[in-house]
Amino acid sequence: MITAEHISKSFEGHTVLDDISAEFETGKTNLIIGKSGSGKTVLLKSLVGLHPVDSGTIRYDDTDFTALGFRERKAIRRDIGMIFQGGALLDSSTVAENVQLPLDLFTEQSEEEKRARVEFCLQRVRLRNAGGLYPAELSGGMIKRVAIARAIVLNPKYLFCDEPNSGLDPQTSIVIDNLIHEITHEYGITTIINTHDMNSVMEIGEKIVYIHEGRKWWEGTKDDILQADNPELNAFVFASAMAKRARANVFSGR
């Protein structure tokens, strides 16, 4: 479990996160949702330590992450996998080299063991024959899948995904969502996904935290969200025509 307790963060006097507290549960896909500019990416990056928080505490299970220095955080970082918005694959390395990098850096495995693990992870994300390609040769969906393979190669306990569907078509988005959801349950990972895609929310959101103007406005499950009595959340959730129809169906009992 990852716990944020009263965390605040500002950049040059501008408050981006204001006293946010939330619990992200183990073995579940936890979603942080909100409009563009609401602070959800800063929240995610604060949780992994890329942005040091101004105040508050972040706990990984029983460990106070905010109290640790760079070297002490290393132990926890090895349990973290992260999927960035653009994939963040190393351009100068092949797909296989990208996935193998954490193994090269943090394990004493033989080349053969590493190759087998890389092959397994690529197979897991259904990219069996892409090991020799460079990121520039991949489609958006393939880049995200390689990023997932790299994120899970060290068997992480925590998985962070920053808008994993951005730039993808609806079908590929569902593939990526389902893949993350499957992996979360398969390995019992604490997964936190940052998204504004309502399809993802309705497909895989087991716990949802809604951020608005840097504050937490609501939290609940995907079953609660359609009936939530929160005007800001409703404006966000029912922004699309499809969601409006879904809400109408819920209330008409269809």
Binding site: K45, V48, L50, R73, K74, R77, R78, I80, M82, F84, Q85, G86, A88, L89, L90, D91, S92, L101, P102, L105, F106, F160
Partner: peptide, 18 residues
């Protein structure tokens, strides 16, 4: 090269790995 790695979050990805 390094600037592109910075703005495309490749450096952040390395930092996350520790």
């Amino acid at each position: 090269e390094i600037g592109t790695m910075r703005i495309t979050e490749q450096i952040d990805a390395l930092e996350i790995m520790g």
